[in-house]
Design a protein around this nucleic acid. Structure first.
Lengths: 128, 128
DNA sequence: ATAAGGGTTCCAGCAAGTGGAAGGTCAAGG
DNA sequence: CCTTGACCTTCCACTTGCTGGAACCCTTAT
């Protein structure tokens, strides 16, 4: 497979795949013309990373998860720990965003949103 | 005021204040010794930006909001529009994060998290 | 022969700062 | 008078996770 095929089948942009090679996730062989040549295993790995990323795992998390994935002696507790930390971060972000949401919704509701200059949104930003 | 005082009173790190000067938000005078000298107006502006940032507005949003803040002829509709767009982005992020949260919570619940290698989290990441 | 549609490399940039080095300034204490 | 420590200054690099673009090569079809 060339990079375009892998891009299509993994759902990752070709640029991202090259980037993932750069940072050491994969080391595809090269064809005589210099094109990257991917096998199913590399495709699988890339898809794995793509799914992990879409669940909010960082690149470093992905490295750890892949190492565990390939270690048949691993303890599931190690995986669970990484997932839990990720979940905590996601929860923290949700909490932050919900607070913003609440404040913004309130301010937007208060704001007439017409031609007049009076605006509770700016008033709020201008005061503590 | 020196930068340290402004940092304390605005809640922004000194580094961030210098950065905000770099990108054109403020232009504090300099004392003879080269130190930045801030007046209350600049402090107020920085605090305004800090509050806007904490509500999720981007730097570019802050520029627009500040311009509107200082324009006594503004229409509150313009402010409201910016706020609504920000709210939409916040909502989108919350939606994404909630989906991650749901999937992750489910996987974590399924995972024994013990010394054994069997792990539904990795299984899920390995398959579609 | 040429054009379209792959592929390659490398460099720059995004957001929004943060960290650190190397050095100038100022007030207080020995 | 000198030093110490807490400020302040500039400048450059780094962060995360890519993405865009330029300049170029390869392949296939017309």
């Amino acid at each position: 497979m060339n990079i375009g095929d892998v891009a299509e089948r993994s759902g990752l942009p070709a640029k991202t795949i090259r980037y993932y090679e750069d940072i050491g996730f994969i080391k595809p062989r090269r064809s005589l013309n210099g094109y990257r040549h991917f096998d199913e295993k590399e495709l699988h790995k890339l898809a794995f990373i793509g799914r992990a990323r879409s669940l909010g795992f960082t690149i470093e998390d992905c490295r750890s998860l892949l190492a565990l994935y390939e270690d048949k002696e691993r303890a599931s507790a190690d995986v669970k720990e990484i997932a839990k930390q990720n979940l905590n971060e996601i929860d923290a972000k949700i909490t932050d965003l919900k607070a913003m949401h609440a404040t913004l919704t309130h301010l937007i509701d208060e704001c007439a949103g017409d031609h007049r200059p009076d605006c509770p949104i700016l008033k709020k930003l201008g005061q503590s």
